[in-house]
Write a protein that binds this DNA or RNA. Structure first.
Lengths: 215, 215
DNA sequence: GTCTATAAGCAGATAGAC
DNA sequence: GTCTATCTGCTTATAGAC
C-alpha cells in the first residue's frame, strides 16, 4: 500500500475515533482499528501518537474550512452571516468536527506538542471568519468600533465552547444558540436604522468610546 | 482519619491534578498522590474514578460560584457586569478552574457518568449569570428582545471555550476578550442613547423582531 | 511498507491483612 | 478506614521477520 494512502487512512481513523470516543479513548490501537491498518504503522508513519493527533488536527480543520470557504465568500451582510452560522453549526454538530477541536484543546494541556497544532487548526477557522467579518462590518455602525481580528477569535472560541456544551446539555445549548441569534439579529437590525436614529447611535457610540478610553 | 477529611482531600487533589495535568493524566494514582492518601481509598470512598470526578466537578463549581456570589449580586448595570466579567476571567484563569470545566466537558464524551455532573456544575454558573442578566437587562433596550436564560448559557459556554482557547493561544484569547469588551461596551452605550434615538432603535428592533418571526 | 511479537509501564479495580 | 499486594487489561513504542 502506498505511504500516502496509509497515512490518509490513519488520519481519517484518528478523526473518526476522536469524534466517536473522545480524546481519552483515542489510542494507537483504536485509531489503527478504525483505519483498518496495523497498529505499528502509527509509529512508522508518524513517530508518536502526539504527532498523529497534531497532523489529524490540521488535516481535519483544512477539510472542514474548505467545505465552507465558498459559502462564506458569498456572505455580504450580517444577517446572511448569521443564517450561515446556524447552518454551519448544524452541519458541524452532526459531523462532530468542532467538538474534535474541543477534545484537542482539552488534550493540549497534557500533550505539549498538541497545543501549537490545535492553535493552527483553529487559526484556519479564524482566518475565514475574520475575512467575512471585515467585509460585513465595513460601513455599518460597528465599523471601527470592534476589532474584526479579535471578534473572529471570540466567535471561534465561543463556537467550540458551544459544541462542548451541547455534548452534555443539548437543550441548554439550543437555548444558548437562540439567544445568540436574537443578539446577532439586533446587531443586524442596527444596520437598518433610520438615518436620524443611526446618526444618534453613531454619535453616542463615539462619545462612549472616547470616554471609556479616557477612563 | 475521618471519612469527611479524606473525601475532601481526594476532591481537592482531583481538582489540583485536573488543573495541572488535564483529564488525560488524572488517574486514581495521581489524585491519591496529590491528596497524600492511599490509592485504594479512591475506590473505598467513591467507588470509581468517574464518581470521584463527578463529585469533584460539583464540589469545585460550588466553591467557585460561592466566591463570586456576593460580587455578582452587587452588579446593577451592563457596564458593571462587564467589568466584573473581566476580573472574574483573570482570577479564574489564574486558578485554572474554568479550564477544569473544559477538561470535564471533553472527558464527558467518554465517561457517561460525567456528562450530567458537568452539566450540573455549569448550571451553578448559569443560574448566577442568568439572575444578574435579568436584573441588568430590565428596562433597557434589550429587555424583551433577548431571552436571559438563553443568553446566560451562551455566556457560560463562551467563557469555557475562551479558557480552553487561552491554553493554546494566550495572545489570541486576549484579542478575543478585548473585542468582546468592545462589543459589550456598545450594548452598554445603547442604554445611554438620547430619548429620540432610543425610541427609533426600539421601534426598529421591534419591527425587525416581528419580521424575523414571520420569516 | 507491513506484519507479529513483545517489552515496559500505567490504568481501574479488588482482596485481605491490620 | 487504611494499608499492601495483586489481577487484568490497555497504553506507547520497538525489534525483527517478511
Amino acid at each position: 500500500m502506498s505511504t500516502d494512502e496509509t497515512r490518509r487512512k490513519l488520519l481519517d481513523g484518528a478523526l473518526r475515533v476522536l469524534v466517536e470516543q473522545g480524546i481519552a479513548k483515542t489510542s494507537a490501537r483504536s485509531v489503527a482499528a478504525a483505519a483498518g491498518v496495523n497498529q505499528g504503522l502509527v509509529f512508522y508513519h508518524f513517530g508518536s501518537m502526539d504527532e498523529l493527533l497534531a497532523a489529524a488536527c490540521r488535516y481535519g480543520a483544512e477539510q472542514r474550512v474548505a467545505r465552507y470557504r465558498e459559502r462564506l465568500g458569498a456572505v455580504g451582510t450580517l444577517s446572511e452571516l448569521l443564517a450561515l452560522g446556524r447552518v454551519l453549526h448544524e452541519e458541524e454538530r452532526e459531523a462532530g468536527q468542532v467538538a474534535v477541536l474541543g477534545q484537542l484543546l482539552a488534550g493540549a494541556q497534557t500533550h505539549p506538542r498538541l497545543g501549537p497544532a490545535t492553535a493552527a487548526g483553529l487559526d484556519l477557522w479564524i482566518e475565514e471568519i475574520e475575512r467575512v467579518l471585515r467585509r460585513v462590518l465595513a460601513g455599518g455602525p460597528l465599523d471601527g468600533a470592534v476589532e474584526p481580528a479579535g471578534l473572529a477569535r471570540t466567535v471561534a472560541a465561543s463556537f467550540v465552547g458551544m459544541e462542548l456544551y451541547e455534548g452534555v446539555d443539548p437543550a441548554g445549548a439550543n437555548a444558548a444558540l437562540d439567544a445568540l441569534e436574537q443578539l446577532a439579529g439586533l446587531l443586524a437590525a442596527l444596520e437598518e436604522l433610520s438615518l436620524v436614529a443611526r446618526g444618534a447611535v453613531r454619535y453616542t457610540l463615539r462619545r462612549k468610546g472616547r470616554l471609556s478610553r479616557e477612563v
